[in-house]
Design a protein around this nucleic acid. Structure first.
Lengths: 195, 195, 195, 195
DNA sequence: CATGAATGAGGCTTCATTCAT
DNA sequence: AATGAATGAAGCCTCATTCAT
C-alpha cells in the first residue's frame, strides 16, 4: 500500500498553489491538494505538520521566487515593469490571483502577512534602485525617486487587480499607455537635465 | 436605539461585513454572523435563503454605497482622490480589507466578480470624467485622459494594498507625495496650455 | 431532516456511560455514543461543545449520584458498606467499571481527577462519620476512627478491582467474610467498653 | 551505556511503560513510544507484530516482575506489605498508575485481564501463605486466614487508588496507621493464643 | 536490522442547512 | 417572525500499519 519516495515537497506545494488559484482560499482543502497531487491526505501530513504550515511554505516559495526574480532586475526598468505587469495580468493571471489570495489570507494571519509585506517592500526598493540608475532627478517636483518605485509598484498591482476583476479587459491598451507614461516621465527627466 | 426588530436585514449585512473583516472569508461562518448580530442562525435563514445570498447582498450593499459616493464627486478630483485613498488606507482600513476580501472571493464567484468589476469600471469612469473637467489636455503625451483615471484608481488601490500588508507604513509620507504628484501633473497640463 | 426536541442531555450522558463501559476509554468515540443514542455526531456537539465536555459531564453526573447516595447513609454502616460493595462488584459491575475507567482517565486529566478525588474524600468522610456513631472507641489501638473510614472505603474499592479482573470470583464468599470482619470489629469495640 | 543496539526490545517495553503512564491509554500511540525510545515507528514493528502485541508484552513484563517480587516475600509480611504499599503510592506512583491503566485496559481485552487476574491471585495467595506462617489463628472470628490475604491486598490497592486520585494526600499518615492496624491484629492473634 | 515515506480508516469538529414549534 | 434542536457532509488531523530501500 505504501509507495515510498515518490512525491516531493515541491510537488505538494505546486499542487497547493494550483488549488488556491482554482478554488480560492475558501475551498482550499487538503483533500483537494491531495487529489491534485494524486496522494492521500496522510501524505500531506507527513510532509507538513499542518494545513497552515503548507500554506506558509507556499508563501515562502512565492517569496523566494519573487526574490530571485527581483535580484535579476538590473537596468531596464521600463520594459521590466511592463513585462512583469503584463505577465501578471494577462497570460499569467495565475501568479497575481495567487498573490492576492494570499494577501487577503494574510489579513488574518500575521505570519503570512509579514512575509508578503517583505516582498512588497523589496519590490519597492528594487524598483526605486533601478529608477535611480536611470533618472538623475525626479520628473515631478515633490515626488522623491524612492517614492516613484512605490508608485510604480502600486500601479502595477492596481492594474492587475482591475484586470482580474474585469473580464472584458481593454487592459492591453492600458498597458501600452503605461509604457507611454514611463517614456514620458523619462523624457521629463532629461528635459529637466537639459535646462 | 428605538424600534428594535425592524431593520433586521441591514443589521445582518452590517454584521456580515464585520465578520468578513474580522475573520476573513475562510472563517466567515453564519454562526459568527449570528453571534455578532445577536440572533440565531435560523434568523439569518429567514432573511436570506442561503449563505451565498447574504454574501451577494453584502457586495450589493457595498456597490450601492460606492455608487452614492461616486455620484458626489464633482470637481475637485485631487483632494477627493487623496481623501479617498487615505481613508481607505489608514483610519478606515475596514473598507479596503472588506473590498479586497470580496475581490478575492469573486475570483471564484462570477456574480460577485461581475458586481465588483462594475464598481471598478464606474470608479474609473467617474475619475476620468472629473479629470476631463480639470485638464484640457493630458500632461503626458501618449496617455489619454481616460487612462489617467484608470491609473489614478490603480495607484490608490495599489497603495491601499501595500498599506494593509505592511504594518510599519511610512504610508503617510507616500500620500503626501501622491498629492504632490497630482499637483505636478496639473502644473504640466497648464504649462502645455501656456505655450 | 431535523427532528427537534427529541433527545435530552441526560440521554446522551447515559449513552456515553454505556459506551465507556462497553468499549473502554480507548474506544470511547463520539460516533459510538451517537450510535447508542441513535443520534448524529452533530447532535452531540450541539449539546456538548467538545468530547472532553461530555466526559466531564459524565463524571459530574456520577459524582452527583454518588453524593445523593452518600447523604442517605445514616446509621447502618455495616449493611450499607456491604451492600454497596456487593452492588458495585457483582450485579452492577457497571458502576465500578465506569468508575475505574474514569479514575484512570483522570490520571491525565486534572479536571476529572479533581472531581473524583472529591467523591472519594466525601465517601471517606461519610463512612468515618457513620462509624463514629457506632463505635465509641477504635477496635484497634493506634488506628483512629477516621482512618477506619478510609480503610473501609479502600477495601471495598480494592475488592471491586479484584472482582473486575478475576472472572472466576469466589467473591461472594469474600463478601460474607467482610461482613464477619465488621461484626468482629464491632464486637471488639464493645469488648473494650465492657472493661 | 555500552553496547547500544542490543537490548532493543526491553528498551521499547520500557519506553512503552513510560508512555502509558505519561499519556494514558487514550493517547498511547506508537509514535509516542518511538519518540521516547528514539527510534522510528518502523522499528517497533520490527520487534512487535502489532500495537496490541507490544501492550501484551508490557503486561507480561510487569507480571514477571511482580512474580519475582512475590517469590522473595518470605517472612515479614507486615513490613513487606507496608513497604510495597508505600512504594506504590508515594515515591513510585509510576507502578500503580501503570497497573491501574492496564487493569482498565483489560476490561476490554481478555488476554490482558487474564494475566492481570493471575498476578492479583498470586499476590493474594502469597500474602495468605505468609500470614499463615505468622498467625496460628485468625485475629477475627469468621474471617479465614486466606481471606486476610485478600483483604490486605485489597486495602493496599484501594489506598493506592485514593493516593493517585487525591493530590493532597494525608496518605503518609494513613500508612502509619495501616502499620498499627497490622501490629494490632498481630497482637490479637497472640492474645487469643495466650488464653 | 532499521528507516522513512506512504496509506487509509477513522476520530473530532465545524458548518450550512432544515424543520417543528 | 424567529428560534433552537438536529442533521449530514465535509474538513482537519491522528494513527496503526505496510513496504521499498
Amino acid at each position: 500500500m505504501a509507495k515510498p519516495n515518490v512525491i516531493k515537497k515541491e510537488d505538494l506545494i505546486t499542487a497547493a498553489k494550483e488549488c488556491l488559484v482554482e478554488k480560492g482560499i475558501e475551498k482550499f482543502t487538503l483533500r483537494a491538494v491531495a487529489d491534485v497531487a494524486m496522494v492521500t491526505q496522510g501524505t500531506i501530513y507527513y510532509h507538513f505538520r499542518t494545513k497552515e504550515q503548507l500554506l506558509l511554505e507556499v508563501v515562502k516559495d512565492i517569496c523566494d521566487g519573487s526574490w530571485k526574480e527581483l535580484s535579476q532586475i538590473n537596468e531596464d526598468v521600463i520594459s521590466q515593469a511592463i513585462i512583469s505587469a503584463k505577465s501578471r495580468c494577462s497570460h499569467d493571471s495565475f501568479f497575481h490571483k495567487l498573490f492576492l489570495t494570499l494577501v487577503v489570507t494574510g489579513f488574518n494571519n500575521d505570519k503570512i502577512r509579514e512575509q508578503l509585506g517583505n516582498i512588497l517592500m523589496q519590490e519597492n526598493e528594487a524598483l526605486s534602485k533601478s529608477i535611480l540608475k536611470l533618472w538623475t532627478k525626479s520628473p515631478i517636483e515633490g515626488v522623491s525617486i524612492e517614492t516613484w518605485g512605490v508608485f510604480l509598484n502600486a500601479i502595477v498591482d492596481g492594474l492587475a487587480l482591475q484586470a482580474l476583476v474585469s473580464k472584458n479587459c481593454s487592459i492591453e491598451n492600458t498597458f501600452e499607455e503605461l509604457e507611454q507614461l514611463i517614456i514620458g516621465l523619462d523624457r521629463l527627466t532629461n528635459l529637466g537635465d537639459g535646462k
